[in-house]
Design a protein around this nucleic acid. Sequence first.
RNA 1: GUCCCCAUCGUCUAGUGGCCUAGGACUCCGGCCUCUCACGUCGGCAGCAGGGGUUCAAACCCCCUUGGGGACGCCA
Length: 465
Amino acid sequence: MTKIVSRFAPSPTGFLHIGGARTALFSWLLARAAGGEFRLRIEDTDRERSTTEATDAIIDSMRWLGLAHDGEIVFQSRRADRHNEVIDQLIAGGHAYYCQCSKEEVDAMREKAMQEGRKPKYDGACRARGLTSGVVRLKAPLEGATGFLDMVKGFISVENAEMDDMILRRSDGTPTYNLAVVVDDHDMGVTHVLRGDDHVNNTPRQIQIYRALGWDVPRFGHVPMILGPDKKKLSKRHGALSVMEYEKMGYLPEAVCNYLARLGWSHGDQELFTMDEMVQHFSTDNLGSSPSVFDLTKFEWVNGQYMQKADPARLADLLMDFLAREVGAEEAAKTDKAVLLRAAPLLQPRAKSIVDMLEQARPFIVEADYMAYDEAAVQKFLTGDTKPMLAEIADRIEADVEFSEASLEDLHRRFIEEKDIKFKAVAQPIRVAIVGKTQSPGLFETMLALGREQTLARLRRAAAL
RNA sequence: GUCCCCAUCGUCUAGUGGCCUAGGACUCCGGCCUCUCACGUCGGCAGCAGGGGUUCAAACCCCCUUGGGGACGCCA
């Protein structure tokens, strides 16, 4: 049994977006599930559009997602000599030939074919001319069909008459994409190619090259695209953001992987998977063949689930990181991390993202004097009736030596019994006093997280408003 | 225009001829929990694109229609 080798081969002409990330995830899963290798190749042969920034962004994104690759990264542009060597081999073997048709001539052929209701293609005019220079074209089979068993779509076949003699080497001597991909995949020992739907049409062409070379053809699988809410291909217009944008929005990488995996793949009714579970259960048999719509709402739910389960210490660290991005490292460092650490477990079940959590953590970050109040909440709850109660509660808390959940509860219970009021009557005023707004985690746990000093300072500040 | 692919609740999906009066999840709507907001929990709304076949039996197989998407480059 041969080892399974899959790969992800993005072209560095832009950032890694959500669609590419999913393709990478599936390829990674395919390899990991089989105990095989996952390789990364940067297809940077388009020198005009490829950038090192994009290359770095792709690598960063993969690392953030946790999709580690095996072996060295292959840069396609550095393999031109090898590609040309193979092209020469093809010419020598009679599987390729030179062509000197001009762009205009070829365009005319395509135009003509189109008018005759056929597929626009080069007509093979130079096949028998025996030229020794020009672009190099593959001498593709004229009859029959080229088919393959797609890992996700099943058997796909295209008539050879539909395909023309594709260019293998340009007039400037550089190899073209289809040739380079075949040579690289072969040389890297790739056995399984999982890629985007938009490559389905390239596959029969690439298979023709494999056959001409006498090489083993790998297994192919084409995963459908991801659509925007309008069911159009996800584009920048509707948030086909780069993976790192989601990081900035405060989403967790495992959540991104989980959501992406469930978009087009399933394992029964299970919605939530750890990375290990995904690896354990992944199979291309369970990949869907129809395109799916990216649903931000469900994604947020998935992220929320991960927020709940995350290690509070990790979340506190992330909160510090995000705060530093906002106010600078120096300013952020003034934050009492111990408070954040205590607040994290309270905020976890309430936050959809780190950014969301940071917003909710504001009251825990600033000193009492700087805490912002929600004006409407102050108007409604910090009244002439309630302010004296807040002052009294502050006194009692100050006198409470224990300052524990139990002692606070007991203290408040006695307070409302003495005043003969319902807890509801003081709960919201206290809440507004300690966090500045009407929503927060439980009162006592919030006080505990804030610490005695901050709790007292806030109650007294509110009482004095 | 030609070729290729796709089609189950609004969305993600389970379903591979009888277990389907189609299951789960998100959203939405109710109830419960409750110091608020969440979380959690219980319940509800909502779907096999249409038409022909095949079969004792079809969401599942075949054909057509319709609708979506992709590709047709000396881009990748």
